[in-house]
Every structure is written in C-alpha cells, then in structure tokens.
Design a protein around this nucleic acid. Structure first.
Lengths: 249, 249
DNA sequence: CGCCTGCATTGACCTGGATCAAGGCACCTG
DNA sequence: CAGGTGCCTTGATCCAGGTCAATGCAGGCG
C-alpha cells in the first residue's frame, strides 16, 4: 500500500499516540470475542497492518483486493473515484469503527484521513480465512457490514430523492448522533470534515452546502462557531427539514 | 405482513409454480451448506414464510424488524419510501438471490414484485439465532451482504456524481451482467421493470430515462424491441458512456 | 501581532434535468 | 383484428443547484 496526496510530500507522524501493540489491543477489545484463543489472537495480529495518516493523507490498497479497516484513532472518509475531479465520499468512519474497502472495479476506492489517524488494516483474504471458523467474529463482521449497508441505503435515498436542504439536515442529524455531545438540551458538533467533504458525501457543491448552512443559521435552526463548530437547537426543527416520513405517532 | 397496492384489489396467484416445500428446497440448495444437519434444516424451514406476489404487489413487514428475503422465482425491487410520491428503489433482485430488508427507521422499506414472484422470508431475529452457530451460513450471509453493500456503493456514486446519460449506461451494463443473454457478440436484455422503476432506481424521472434511451438508440449504441427488449451492441460503446475510470491498460 | 494562505461565504448567471402537457404505440381484451 | 388503456415518447418551459467570480475571514507562521 502507498500514501498519496501527502500535502507536505511525506506522511506526518507528529502525534503518533499508539504503538502497533496498543492499536491491535484496541481492535481486539472492540471487535474480537473476549474468549478468543491466544493462538487466534496472534494470527489476527500477524495479519494486521498499521498505518499513521496525517490530515488529508490517503491510503490506497494497491493489491487489487478487498480490505477490512479499523479506525484506532481519528476520523476517516472512504472515497470513491468516479473519474478525474469527480469523487464521491461513500462513508465517514470514526475511532472504534470497522468497515470494508471494496476492491477496485469500475471505480477505485481509498481511505483518507479527516484528521491525524491511526489505522489498522487487513487484507480480506487473510481476515476471511482467520474468521471463517470463528462464528463470533463472523457475527460481529456481519453486524458491521449490515450497519454499513443500512447507512449506505439511507444515503442513497438522500442522493436520489432529497433536496439540498434536506440532505444537509439529514447529514447534521446523522453526525449529531455519531459524534455530537449533548449539553443542556443543545447538541454541540465539532465537524472534522471540510465543506468540500460534506459536499462530496451529499452529491452537492461546496457553495450549495455553504448556502444551506447559512440558511439554517438565518432561520435559527443552528448556530455556528468557527469553521467546524455547529450547535443544533431543538432536534425537532432539523428533523422537520430532513424529508423523513412524518409518523402518525 | 400485509399486501398493499394490489392493482386488482387482491394478490394474484394465477401462476403459482412452487409449493412451500419446493421453494424452501431451492433456498436450501442455493444458500444453506450441503452438510447442514437435518435438524437445523428443519429449524430453518420452520422459520421461513413463503409469499406469492403478483406484478406490482408488495410485501410490507409490519413487525418493525429487519428481514431476510430469498427470491425463489421472479424479480423484485426493494423500495424505500422517503415521503409521499418520493420513492427510491434501493435494489433489484432476481431469482436465486438473497437480500436483507432494513427495519423501518427514518424511512420505511417494502419489497415488491416486478413480475409474478415466489418469495421466502425470515425474520432477522429468527434467522440470526439459527445461523449464529453455523459458520458456513454466516459466511454465506456475509458474502451476500457484502455484495449488496458493493452494489449500493456503486449506485451511490452514480446518484451523487453521474449525469443522466451515465446512469443509464451504468444501469444497462449492470442489467446485462445480471440478466442479459449473449448471442453472437450482442447482448439481449428483457427488462422486467418499467421506465418508472428505472427512473426511481437512478434518481431520475421517466421522461429523462426515455429521452436518454432514445438518444442511445439514435446513436446506434442500443436497439430496442418493444417496451422491455433492449439489444446492446458492442459493450465498449456503453462503457465509454458510463463515466468509469479509464484504465491505462 | 500583522501578514499570508486557503477555506468559506456571497453574488450573478447558466444549464441539466424536472415539470407540465400532448400525442403515440404496445399489448390486451373481447 | 378493432378498440381501449396505460405505458412510453416527445415537445415546451421552468427552476434548483451548478458554475464562475469575487470577497471575507480563521488560523498559522514569521
């Protein structure tokens, strides 16, 4: 695997906070069953590769296969390259999450860092071999994959059928759920991604994202604090703008 | 579960071709490992529910949970309801395929028949319990889910970043791969879905779908035969219009 | 602590595809 | 095989969001 798009030419390592052993331990705690034999534990460890990615560095998997990735620390985007300058962000992932990177086919995929990251990755062929006789690992992986599929489908609904305003509302609600911190009824968000990233995940342009955020601000639904801070008022107001099913409840 | 949108008020059963036992046998042949014990086989059978769906009938899962569906015969669409008259088709599935139907959340999902169908469904809670100690079943399900995820992601790229023309080209190529029949270098497609279905799966309108097909016809890339027949000439010409990565190869 | 750089915002204009509105023609039915 | 019904196609117009073009401003660096 290789690094590309390194803004300063070289991948940064300035805030490396985890050793390989620590990283793997976090993965095991999070993902492997507690009663897994030491032997299997070691075999998984042997299959793992760790990477440190500085902001906007990306990880390309050159071997043409599918991969499993665990985010030890930081936040990532999974980017699909449709053609020159037409990228679509397929998913964001935060510390503690596991996801799969598809093998390149009609489009190629890469994982890149929203902020400094530690990442653990496995070739799918290796991981699959190890997991195949461990039902607990398979269940965990299935659960994770189903979660990704649900998110991807919800996203597809947005991309196919929602207006720009609705997409932004859905995005903010989703992020609030994943990385928001609640404090006396208001939700504080510190978005790790740029406007460009938001736009590329919602199938919009940065200008439209900006205009919609301004609109929400003017209407008093959100407040902003610097480039990355967003404060959501009553969640209901955003939900009303998300184009969800209005439940009779 | 209940049927809705029955065009003639009642679900049709005119061409029921498979008994429950036959249907389950096809599922087992296709999806369960050959060496599965008779006891487990019976438990899976006990968890299965079969449905016959006439064209445009749909299956709603009223119990609020996730479901596993096997298409015994026919072809289905998985529809997400964003709000009144804004449906997004999330996936098409053909005979022999297995897929999951998400539980209703912000949007609700239903499975409906493109043509007369026999279907087998399982509540996820039941299926999951049975499969949890059968690595072979888990692997199969994981494989299926990953396949759905890959398709959903490719679709998301299209919905987010491709033009109407590109989406149609991608759609035709995908269908050619799944249900096309090749004959002296040309591929014959008999599309089971209407223009409306195509539009709802690609995030377009029927008019745009029609115009793009006309354009492809005028340009000699495809020929049409009646409403559902499409003949693709050299596949390369369609690929050129699909907005895929141009590989240096 | 003020300049510099690059993201973010705002404004003016344009366009691909949606919407609205007729026809046309496949396929069914009798 | 004539007549009807519901898709499908085609044409005219509109508009949400894209594109192009400044300007503003946060955060880093000398």
């Amino acid at each position: 695997m290789t690094w590309i798009k390194a803004p300063a030419g070289e991948p940064r390592e300035k805030t490396r906070m985890t050793t390989f052993a620590e990283a793997f331990q976090r993965f095991a705690d999070q993902f492997l069953p507690p009663n897994l034999s030491d032997a299997m534990h070691l075999r998984f460890q042997a299959a793992a590769r760790s990477s440190q990615l500085g902001r906007e560095n990306s990880l390309e998997f050159g071997d043409g296969g599918q991969h499993i990735v665990f985010v030890v620390r930081g936040a990532t985007k999974l980017v699909a390259h449709a053609s020159e300058s037409r990228d679509q962000i397929v998913a964001f992932h935060f510390a503690g999450e596991v996801f799969t990177v598809p093998e390149p086919g009609n489009h190629s995929y890469s994982v890149s860092a929203l902020k400094d990251c530690d990442i653990l990755s496995f070739r799918w062929t290796d991981f699959s071999t190890l997991a195949s006789s461990e039902p607990a690992v398979l269940r965990r992986l299935l659960e994770t994959t189903m979660q990704s599929l649900r998110r991807c489908r919800e996203n597809a609904i947005g991309l196919g059928r929602k207006t720009a305003g609705e997409r932004i509302a859905v995005f903010l609600l989703g992020m609030a759920e994943r990385i928001g911190s609640e404090q006396d009824g208001r939700i504080f968000l510190d978005l790790p991604m740029s406007r460009r990233d938001i736009a590329e995940s919602l199938g919009l342009t940065i200008e439209t994202v900006s205009r919609q955020l301004t609109k929400l601000k003017e209407e008093g639904v959100i407040q902003t604090a610097g480039r990355s801070g967003v404060i959501l008022g009553a969640r209901g107001h955003l939900r009303d703008r998300a184009g969800f099913l209005l439940e009779a409840a």
